[in-house]
């Protein structure tokens, strides 16, 4: 009988409980789903925060600038400034990103090993949507965008956003989005994010085994609604800039 076991897939030595679960593909899917939930909550929160842009200025400062400062001040005076932001938002978020990406890479490799020889004729997919089949590409686009976005509006790298002024969120984003290549980049990235959420926000239910025939049809509805709301919210800002509502 042929030994069909895939190379490197023999059972491995004992490991701590959580690591041993993560070592399995199914465990990595849980990790992707849970980190995905964290990231979904983040994009939702971020999107809602962005809407402060439309509140304009109040007493000489833009509302969104106050909001940005507020995030840094979270927990004060109990905790030092920015500590809560780092400990409860930025670091967990970064961890979620890293886990999501690591699991994705490992699963991609596993899936590639599972079909070493591809089909030699074109496939005719019935259910696998464009969104699901392009998860890794939409993910890569979102990741590249994230790097740009951090350099552009969080860190303020000179080469990326020469007009960056620390703390002036409103000014920075108007400066950035007024350049049309950047504007296009932001809009394109949101479209990729929409596709990614479109599949991911449904897929996580399956991966975590949250299934009940009575409610299952709402899982898709939820995913589509979530993707639409988040991305519509995000797109409002560049659209606002383009229409001069935000300037």
């Amino acid at each position: 009988m042929l030994n069909l076991r895939r190379a490197g897939r023999e059972r491995v030595r004992r490991a701590p409980w959580i690591v041993s679960i993560y070592r399995t593909d199914t465990g990595k899917k849980y990790a992707m789903a849970i980190s995905g939930v964290v990231l979904l909550l983040f994009v939702l929160g971020h999107m809602i925060g962005n809407l402060h842009v439309f509140e304009g200025a109040h007493g000489g400062t833009f509302r969104i600038d106050e909001y940005g400062e507020g995030l840094r001040d979270l927990g004060e005076p109990l905790f030092p400034r920015t500590m809560v932001l780092w400990a409860f938002l930025r670091i967990p978020l970064a961890a979620a990103f890293l886990i999501h990406i690591h699991a994705a890479l490992a699963l991609t490799r596993s899936n590639r090993d599972a079909r070493e020889t591809k089909y030699q004729s074109p496939r005719d997919y019935l259910a696998a949507r464009y969104a699901s089949r392009t998860m890794r590409w939409s993910g890569v686009i979102v990741l590249l965008f994230l790097a740009w976005h951090l350099a552009d509006l969080t860190i303020g790298v000179e080469a990326v956003n020469p007009d960056f002024v620390r703390g002036s969120v409103y000014h920075n984003l108007v400066a950035s989005l007024s350049r049309w290549p950047v504007w296009i980049l932001y809009v394109a990235a949101q479209v990729a994010l929409a596709f990614h959420i479109w599949h991911g926000a449904w897929s996580l239910f399956q991966s975590l085994g949250i299934s009940n025939p009575r409610f299952n049809r709402f899982r898709r509805t939820f995913a589509h609604a979530f993707a639409t709301v988040v991305v519509a919210g995000f797109l409002a800002v560049p659209v606002g800039v383009a229409l001069d509502i935000v300037s």
């Binding site: 899917k29 596993s110 899936n111 449904w202 085994g209 299934s211």
Partner: peptide, 28 residues
């Protein structure tokens, strides 16, 4: 997992199945 790839919830298996086995089983 020693033999096969992982599930990305494409859902392509369900319509291919001649017996119409449901994806719900995977969630279970």
């Amino acid at each position: 997992e020693e033999y096969f790839g992982s599930c990305s919830n494409h859902g392509e298996c369900e319509p291919a199945c001649p017996k119409g086995i449901s994806l719900d089983n995977i969630a279970l």
